[in-house]
Amino acid sequence: MASYPRAEISPPSGSLFPHKHLLGIWGMDPTSIKHLLDVAEKYVDQNRQAKKTTSTCAGLTQINLFFENSTRTLMSFEIAGKRLGMDTISMSTGSSSIKKGETLLDTAATLNAMHPDVLVMRHADSGAVKLLSEKMDCAVINAGDGRSEHPTQALLDALTIRRRKGQIHGQTIVISGDIAHSRVARSNIYLLNAMGARVRLIAPPTLLPADVERLGVEVYHRMDEGLEGADVVMMLRLQQERMNGAFLPSLREYYRFWGLTKEKLSVAKDDVLVMHPGPMNRGVEIASDVADDLDRSAIEEQVEMGVAVRMACLDVLTRGLRGDE
């Protein structure tokens, strides 16, 4: 099994996951990360059986509160909850009272009064999920806050890499695309660093945040340099509003220099793994033949791991409630 750069010391509580909430990867130790991945592994098998639903979390209530549009993450959390036998309720922006001027903390108080057992939340502001968690009695899972973190995405990426490559430690992993506005990039940087990978970023200077190298990554602007000898390439989605003029001159030009093509990928290792958190812009950040390359692309597998990882998070965070530490 993998060896980790930090000593695996059991946390003082003796629990392998001594956290009430899952707000981000930052500050989480390798033991906790590994524990979540190990639990998720079990659910991958469960999800491949005909009977996928158990009563592990039966009787518990899960609320998915999404202040930002999402289809795949929201659905993934819903399926994860249902497979564990939870009662899941989802609420998206359109139907929320935030439009009526209610503050986030009032929303928190309202939801808290309904006694949920897990709250999954996505919000457009960095730090919003942490703020809400301070007012909730139940476990809170961050499903993406602003540009800050998207921890379950990083965990599902880690699980995918671990299953394909055997371990995360020592792998050269490239993250490429709009790093500046990406919470996926941040969570992945923290997780992969904690697990001992070598992280490289490739992006045009306009899409890199200030002092990003201080997060412990190597920064490249050229694809051919950054992809040299890479074990894994994670492409990020380029948001529509960044494409025209403000950060980049055009889609055409972005694809020319930063789109992942077979040719650019040729300098990476032969068995390089190609990943993308979805939804993809084919012909913008990734060429179709790369995305659809069955030997290298793990994009669909990521979606599958997503459900398993989210089941693991829901399971682990409710163990105390269920008296199953």
Partner: peptide, 15 residues
Amino acid sequence: HEGELATRLGLAGIP
């Protein structure tokens, strides 16, 4: 402030 902290917390920076 545009710098390491803003980058880590995901905050919009002012140089």
